[in-house]
Protein backbone atom coordinates (compact mmCIF):
# COMPACT_ATOMS: atom_id res chain seq x y z
CA UNK A 1 0.00 0.00 0.00
CA UNK A 2 2.78 2.39 1.01
CA UNK A 3 4.68 1.61 -2.18
CA UNK A 4 1.58 2.33 -4.25
CA UNK A 5 1.04 5.69 -2.59
CA UNK A 6 4.69 6.56 -3.04
CA UNK A 7 4.52 5.59 -6.71
CA UNK A 8 1.42 7.74 -7.28
CA UNK A 9 2.99 10.76 -5.56
CA UNK A 10 6.16 10.34 -7.62
CA UNK A 11 4.17 10.16 -10.86
CA UNK A 12 2.19 13.30 -9.95
CA UNK A 13 5.34 15.23 -9.10
CA UNK A 14 7.09 14.08 -12.28
CA UNK A 15 4.15 15.04 -14.48
CA UNK A 16 3.86 18.42 -12.75
CA UNK A 17 7.56 19.02 -13.21
CA UNK A 18 7.45 18.32 -16.93
CA UNK A 19 4.27 20.34 -17.35
CA UNK A 20 5.98 23.25 -15.65
CA UNK A 21 9.03 22.89 -17.85
CA UNK A 22 6.89 22.78 -20.98
CA UNK A 23 4.95 25.90 -20.06
CA UNK A 24 8.18 27.68 -19.16
CA UNK A 25 9.64 26.68 -22.53
CA UNK A 26 6.62 28.09 -24.33
CA UNK A 27 6.87 31.30 -22.31
CA UNK A 28 10.58 31.53 -23.10
CA UNK A 29 9.88 31.04 -26.81
CA UNK A 30 8.25 34.44 -26.94
CA UNK A 31 11.10 35.94 -25.05
CA UNK A 32 13.75 34.59 -27.37
CA UNK A 33 12.88 37.66 -29.42
CA UNK A 34 13.58 41.04 -27.85
CA UNK A 35 10.56 42.28 -25.89
CA UNK A 36 9.38 45.90 -26.03
CA UNK A 37 6.45 47.85 -24.66
CA UNK A 38 4.14 49.83 -26.91
CA UNK A 39 5.69 52.96 -25.43
CA UNK A 40 9.11 51.86 -26.71
CA UNK A 41 8.04 51.37 -30.31
CA UNK A 42 5.37 54.01 -30.90
CA UNK A 43 7.69 56.90 -31.81
CA UNK A 44 9.79 55.18 -34.49
CA UNK A 45 8.36 51.75 -35.31
CA UNK A 46 10.45 51.13 -38.42
CA UNK A 47 13.64 51.52 -36.40
CA UNK A 48 12.84 48.06 -35.02
CA UNK A 49 13.90 45.47 -37.57
CA UNK A 50 13.36 41.76 -37.83
CA UNK A 51 11.10 39.79 -35.50
CA UNK A 52 10.34 41.34 -32.13
CA UNK A 53 7.80 40.83 -29.37
CA UNK A 54 5.60 43.64 -28.07
CA UNK A 55 3.92 43.57 -24.69
CA UNK A 56 0.66 45.47 -24.22
CA UNK A 57 -3.04 45.52 -23.37
CA UNK A 58 -5.69 44.78 -26.00
CA UNK A 59 -8.07 47.75 -26.10
CA UNK A 60 -10.01 47.30 -29.34
CA UNK A 61 -10.82 44.92 -32.14
CA UNK A 62 -10.30 45.92 -35.77
CA UNK A 63 -11.32 44.24 -39.04
CA UNK A 64 -7.80 42.92 -39.68
CA UNK A 65 -6.65 42.43 -36.10
CA UNK A 66 -6.71 44.38 -32.85
CA UNK A 67 -5.31 47.43 -31.08
CA UNK A 68 -2.76 47.25 -28.27
CA UNK A 69 -1.86 49.98 -25.79
CA UNK A 70 0.92 50.47 -23.27
CA UNK A 71 0.22 48.48 -20.09
CA UNK A 72 0.84 51.48 -17.86
CA UNK A 73 -1.28 53.99 -19.73
CA UNK A 74 -2.95 56.46 -17.40
CA UNK A 75 -6.18 58.35 -17.91
CA UNK A 76 -4.34 61.67 -17.93
CA UNK A 77 -1.81 60.63 -20.57
CA UNK A 78 -2.47 60.60 -24.34
CA UNK A 79 -3.38 57.19 -25.71
CA UNK A 80 -1.47 55.49 -28.45
CA UNK A 81 -3.01 52.41 -29.97
CA UNK A 82 -0.72 50.12 -31.92
CA UNK A 83 -2.52 48.44 -34.79
CA UNK A 84 -1.72 44.72 -34.85
CA UNK A 85 -2.62 42.77 -37.97
CA UNK A 86 -3.25 39.12 -37.10
CA UNK A 87 -4.82 36.28 -39.09
CA UNK A 88 -5.89 34.25 -36.08
CA UNK A 89 -8.50 34.95 -33.40
CA UNK A 90 -8.07 38.32 -31.70
CA UNK A 91 -7.55 38.11 -27.93
CA UNK A 92 -10.21 39.51 -25.63
CA UNK A 93 -10.30 43.24 -24.92
CA UNK A 94 -8.53 43.97 -21.65
CA UNK A 95 -6.19 41.02 -21.98
CA UNK A 96 -2.44 41.65 -21.61
CA UNK A 97 -0.54 39.93 -24.39
CA UNK A 98 2.84 39.25 -25.95
CA UNK A 99 2.63 39.81 -29.70
CA UNK A 100 5.48 38.49 -31.85
CA UNK A 101 6.01 39.69 -35.39
CA UNK A 102 7.49 42.61 -37.28
CA UNK A 103 6.57 46.07 -38.52
CA UNK A 104 5.45 46.01 -42.14
CA UNK A 105 4.98 49.75 -42.33
CA UNK A 106 4.93 52.56 -39.83
CA UNK A 107 1.55 52.07 -38.33
CA UNK A 108 0.97 48.31 -38.55
CA UNK A 109 2.60 45.44 -36.69
CA UNK A 110 2.17 42.12 -38.52
CA UNK A 111 1.84 39.49 -35.83
CA UNK A 112 2.69 35.82 -36.30
CA UNK A 113 2.03 34.79 -32.72
CA UNK A 114 -0.13 36.16 -29.93
CA UNK A 115 0.06 34.83 -26.40
CA UNK A 116 -1.67 36.14 -23.30
CA UNK A 117 0.53 36.76 -20.26
CA UNK A 118 -0.34 34.79 -17.13
Amino acid sequence: MKKTILAVITIIFTLSFFAGCASQATETQHQNYPVFSVNDVQHDPLAFTGVITIHGVVTMHMPSGFGVEYTQQRACCPDFVLHVAFDGNAPAIGETVYVTGSFVHTSVFQATQVRPTR
Binding site: D44, F48, G50
Partner: peptide, 13 residues
Protein backbone atom coordinates in the same frame (compact mmCIF):
# COMPACT_ATOMS: atom_id res chain seq x y z
CA UNK B 1 11.78 63.66 -25.79
CA UNK B 2 11.03 60.82 -28.18
CA UNK B 3 12.33 57.31 -28.80
CA UNK B 4 13.98 55.43 -31.59
CA UNK B 5 16.01 52.23 -31.83
CA UNK B 6 19.57 51.36 -32.72
CA UNK B 7 20.25 47.66 -33.38
CA UNK B 8 16.78 46.91 -31.91
CA UNK B 9 17.61 48.61 -28.62
CA UNK B 10 15.48 51.60 -27.60
CA UNK B 11 17.28 54.92 -27.35
CA UNK B 12 15.93 58.29 -26.23
CA UNK B 13 16.07 61.17 -28.70
Amino acid sequence: TQRTAIQNATVTV
